[in-house]
Design a protein around this nucleic acid. Sequence first.
RNA 1: GCGAGUGUGGCGGAAUGGCAGACGCACAGGACUUAAAAUCCUGAGAGGGCAACUUCGUGAGGGUUCGAGUCCCUCCACUCGCACCA
Length: 805
Amino acid sequence: MDFKQIEKKWQEKWVKEKTFNAIDFHPTKPKYYVLYEFCNVSGHLHMGHLKGTVPSDALARYKRFKGYNVLFPIGGDAFGLPAENAAIKTGIDPHDFVAQGMKTITSELNKIGLSFDWDRTICTSDPEYYKWTQWIFLQLFNHGKAYKEKAKVNFCPKCQTVLSNEDSQGGKCDRCGSDVVQEERQSWFLKMREYGDKLLQNVDRIQMAENLKEAQRNWIGRSEGTEISFDIYDESGKKLDKLDIYTTCVETVYGITFVALAPELKLIDKLKGSIKNWPEVETYRKQAALRSEFDRMSDQKDKTGCKLEGLYVINPANGRKVDIYIADFVLAGYATGAVMAVPSHDQRDYEFAQKFNIPLVQVIEGDTSTRAVEKGEYIPKNSKLMNSAEFSGMPAQEARVKIAEALIKAGVARKKVNYKMTDWAFNRQRYWGEPFPIVICPHCGEVGLSEKDLPLILPEVKDYLPNKNGDSPLSKATEWVNCKCPKCGRDAKRETDTMPNWAGSSWYWLRYTDPHNSEKLADFEKLKYWGSVDCYTGGTEHITRHVLYAFFWQNFLYEIGAVPTRDPFIRKMGSGLILTSEGKKMSKSSANGVSPIEVIEKYGADVTRMHLHFLGGYEDNTPLTYDGIKGITSFVDKVWSLQDMIKGDGVSKEHSFELASLNKKAGEDYENLKLNTAISAMMIFVKKIKEDGFITKEELRQFLIFLNPLAPHITSEMYERVFGGNIADESWPEYDEKDLVKAEVELAIQVSSKIITRLNVPTSASNDEILALAKADEKVAAALSGKTIVKEIVVPGRIVNIIAK
RNA sequence: GCGAGUGUGGCGGAAUGGCAGACGCACAGGACUUAAAAUCCUGAGAGGGCAACUUCGUGAGGGUUCGAGUCCCUCCACUCGCACCA
């Protein structure tokens, strides 16, 4: 068998004949939408692609056999740093780099034998595509969901650009791994935090592994609590201002012994005149500003801070005076940037209080002599309150509700929900991205372009390097930058930052439904027809980034009536990692990454597909070795040899059970992306055929269909040789339920839960008949002699257990 | 620290509460061969026994059940996510 020639033949045929093109509004077939995360066009095919694409390809092929109109598209994610860095390094125009990259990656993907609809291929840096990315931004802007503001943002000094929180996880730049710093900058934000609850509902509805859902919920970080207002006074008792503080532990409000503010809080500047030790405060604030938020978070042990002399607040619960500190353990970006400190019941406050000799007031029972008794301890125990006026003696869980009610009734507090997730910092000071459809007018401020002026084409520049002063390279394209204000017509300038690389990927699954539409991002009826993605596969590293962005944009587009549903995806399967044989993560670029193309050339695509997925489940991390590949190679050889064993037609009585079982098992496994057990089932079937020495024509036809989603090339070739025509035109065979049942089954017979013997009994036998047969057996009779039967259990097809004393 | 997930032979891994270790690799023995490779057949969780057989076995300990890898509780280990989030 010349697998190279066979694979090439079929891959070319599928593309040329458009075998797997999806049909809009198919008159009879139901739709099924399978999506694999589109590829970055800057690189080559890597093992991760093979791990991720093959099960979705198998699912797509299976669903087509089952009579579905399957949409299984692919495209390229092209904007962003890889193309731009290549441009800077080699001088190649990013447009050319991307065009070449698309060709490379698609031709490499094709070598795996994937059944894509190539006519729907899109590329995010294509103006026909990014026109609609800009259009969506414009809608966000027009609906008040995008705003520009001077704020502290994450900034990567090496990439010279602003980053979102999602791109700065762990304080490292997602692209280059440099430490991210916090800088005050004019930045674009999308109001993602406003969508917190809606995103959580998307998380609840999607079918996805629990650990991934938890990661998303964690990232969104919703908490319910109480916001309490504290009045601020100076030494003379004059009320100066009000301080809002958010807490999730309102039951500890009587234990407040100080409050702490984030050093960068603007309120501190307002109070400057009344702060007696201003120089000291100022020094501390400068120190804190020098440390990035990530530095501050990483050294949790060492608490620093500075008292605001001459000021105090009144605890509205008990009227007590409370000192004010600024401390860098308090984060400006979360809630109000101020905490009510209860050292007895919060470990951070406890450590701070120790360092600054602040007294403790214990308000909930427990041992606070060496550490705080925290929520996690007193809530499950429901410990009683103390030192809390009329709430003393009340269990903590009840006090939580009652104290909040009392403060709300008194008008000093309200219920509040907070999120850790922040608004999405949406601008980058880089060249290779979508230009904002925004004009900055000295008179009108930020003005959106008219929809008819889209796409706003990214201008050609010679110098792709970011400016040292932090401006985007586009600022140098003066002819492009200078324009007229669409509102007042006077001189204005375009926004010169570009969108982040996540912009184009936040809606691309919608475009596949109608990729060439020049009037709309996609026709509404087509969006309705294709609906949510039925099964979305791809890496887990995008769970707290791309997938959340996808939820966000889809919700927004739904609300403005551009798409028919709030859920982009019905099911999301997170692909496991390919590990080296030592169990280390295999990286795309480094030396331990093996090119799948080499493996495919050596063993063939069918063998490579099956080998990789025989190693483990879709969501498992699999260490890659070639030790076992021999088993797959010899399996494929055996399959090939089946064409020399054909005898008769129809389904033989020798094989009807095995064929029906395989039918059922393979179908379930494809549906669940469990290729490893599907392969195992195929092997068991072939083993049986080899034993019997024959296969009928009909059995072979069915078997080829069952195996086709795993090994599309060899099965297509064999089908054509034996039956003529294309196996892709076949449909999944039906099986008769009664073929799943053998005439006889072997049952394990237990006496008092211990296996005594095994008996073959007719499947049709009733429980009583089975018991009678069992008791008639010599060994069973011996085991039962002299004992009284207490209980008899028959599990049909499995086991008989006779309990005797 | 918090949360989630996972622990099964020499290895990758199977098992709707019902015969643990499917399938494959590696291993051992045999057939074919001058020989090797390839191929085919056979064996095999561990311990004991010539044998029929028997004891122990799914991270550890307890529990529920006629029956637990699977369900419940406690603990341990590993992986991932978040991490001074008030």
